[in-house]
Amino acid sequence: MSSVSGLVKTEQLYRSQSGWLQRAFAWCGWENGQVMANIRAGRMLTDYGRYHLSRKQFIFAAIAAALVFYMAAYLFYHSALVSIAAAGFGIIAPRFRRRSLLQQRKERLKLQFKEALFSLTSSLAAGRSLENAFLATLDDLKLLYPDPRTELLLEFQIIRFRLENAEPLEYALRNFADRAGIDEITQFTDALAACKRSGGDLLEVMKRTSAIIGEKLEIEQEIAVMIAQKRFEGRIMMAVPFVFLAFLSLAAPDYMAPLYGGIGYLLLTAALLLLLLCFWAMAKMMRIQM
Rank of each mutant, 00 (worst) to 15 (best):
A66E: 07
L268K: 03
R128M: 14
A281Q: 12
K106I: 07
L153S: 13
L173S: 08
V82F: 12
L274R: 04
E170R: 09
D47K: 04
R174C: 02
P258T: 05
R179V: 15
H52K: 03
E115H: 04
A172M: 08
P258S: 03
D140E: 12
I84K: 04
K106M: 10
A193L: 10
L102N: 06
E167D: 03
E164L: 14
D140L: 04
L217S: 04
I236V: 13
L169N: 09
G33Q: 11
A62L: 14
I63D: 13
S54F: 03
L45H: 14
G29I: 06
V35M: 10
N175S: 14
R50M: 05
T150E: 15
N132T: 07
V68N: 01
Y14A: 09
E167W: 05
Y171L: 14
L135R: 05
A224D: 11
M290A: 08
P241S: 00
E107L: 14
E222D: 09
A62N: 11
G29L: 06
V35P: 02
G42K: 02
M290R: 01
F242E: 01
V243W: 02
E184I: 04
L248I: 06
S54L: 05
Q104T: 07
P241R: 00
A37S: 12
F232A: 12
Q22A: 15
E204W: 11
S198L: 15
N132C: 00
F25S: 12
D201T: 04
L102I: 10
I92L: 09
R40L: 14
A283H: 13
P94Q: 06
R160H: 06
R40F: 10
Q57R: 07
Y74E: 05
E11D: 00
N132I: 02
G90E: 09
L275F: 03
L117I: 13
I59Y: 11
Y255E: 01
L152N: 05
A85G: 10
P258V: 04
F69D: 08
R128K: 08
A166D: 13
E11W: 02
H52Y: 07
S198R: 09
V4H: 14
I219A: 07
A87L: 14
A64W: 00
M286E: 07
L276T: 00
R55K: 10
I219P: 02
C278K: 07
A61H: 01
A172T: 10
